[in-house]
């Protein structure tokens, strides 16, 4: 399997190691993640697919430190460090980037100003000097072109009045500027028409690098036509029930999630399937 190829053929650094992760919703105690095991090495792109309600977004939220979830068991190591012990902003500064499924509007705050503040927070954490407005504009120029971010979009308030496609392009543009080590893309394809999808995917592909790991969360196979993952995991009811290469995504597209769930049930224990 691709995952194993990573260790045997190349000595890539382990970027993210999730072990037996259990998490529930704080308010009502509903358990969403029921024992996730996942290892991603630098340079790899993993896709997590699954039906609605399988826990895909919860996984993204727990990894990025959003309030409202309680981890009840397991651990997550990011570059060997305890990720769950870090505040959300520390995770971000350490290089964890979440591309939001629903990017948030911040009225009155210019897009470029926001991004510069963000970049400087990250730079400061890494012991780099803050970047001034002039140098910043130079730095973002090429990246803005890559994501087809028009000047007007850069000057407007963060995500305010942006179309669905513009919001997602803006997310990937931020990612390009912030240069994270681990990018979690939560349903980046949702709400995109085919042209916007192409732009976003081109941006993401340009950011693939041996130093960076990506976790692509998606409901549909469609995005994976553009971003070819090294590994595909299927998440169902809070567990990874199947892991395979990119052909798994095509199988899912053909047969639907019902097929996996049925197979999982037949196998008796989903964990066994996941480790395949």
């Amino acid at each position: 399997m691709n995952g194993e190829r990573g260790t045997s053929e190349k000595k890539e650094m382990t970027m993210l190691q999730i072990e037996n992760l259990h998490a529930r919703i704080q308010d009502d105690g509903t358990e969403i993640l029921k024992g996730i095991d996942l290892t991603i090495r630098a340079g790899e792109v993993h896709a997590i697919m699954g039906p609605n309600g399988s826990g895909k977004s919860t996984l993204a939220h727990v990894l990025s430190g959003r309030d409202g979830y309680e981890v009840t068991a397991g651990r997550v190591l990011y570059q060997g460090k305890d990720l769950l012990a870090m505040a959300p902003e520390i995770r971000a500064r350490e290089g964890v980037f979440l591309s939001f499924q629903y990017p948030v509007e911040i009225p009155g705050v210019a897009n470029t100003y926001f991004l510069r503040m963000s970049l400087n927070a990250v730079r400061k954490h890494r012991g780099l000097p803050e970047i001034d407005a002039m140098d910043f504009m130079e730095l973002i120029e090429g990246k803005a072109k890559l994501l087809e971010m028009e000047d007007a979009l850069m000057a407007r308030s963060v995500n305010e009045g942006f179309s669905g496609g513009e919001k997602k392009r803006n997310e990937i543009f931020q990612m390009a500027v912030l240069d994270p080590k681990l990018a979690i893309l939560d349903e980046t394809d949702s709400g995109l028409d085919i042209d916007a999808l192409r732009v976003v995917a081109t941006g993401i592909n340009a950011l693939r690098s041996p130093e960076r790991a990506m976790l692509v969360i998606t409901h549909y196979q469609r995005l994976l036509n553009y971003i070819e993952p090294d590994v595909v995991h299927v998440l169902a009811d809070g567990r990874i029930v199947k892991t395979g290469d990119r052909t798994l995504a095509h199988l899912l597209e053909e047969k639907g999630y019902g097929w996996i769930e049925a197979e999982g049930a037949a196998a008796g224990t989903t964990a066994a399937v996941a480790k395949g």
Binding site: D67, A92, V104, S118, A121, V122
Partner: peptide, 18 residues
């Protein structure tokens, strides 16, 4: 002031106060 807005900013590296 939205939890969503705060979390979005923090996920981009800004402290709660900033």
């Amino acid at each position: 002031i939205g939890e969503d807005q705060l979390f979005y900013c923090r996920q981009r590296g800004l402290s709660n106060e900033d």
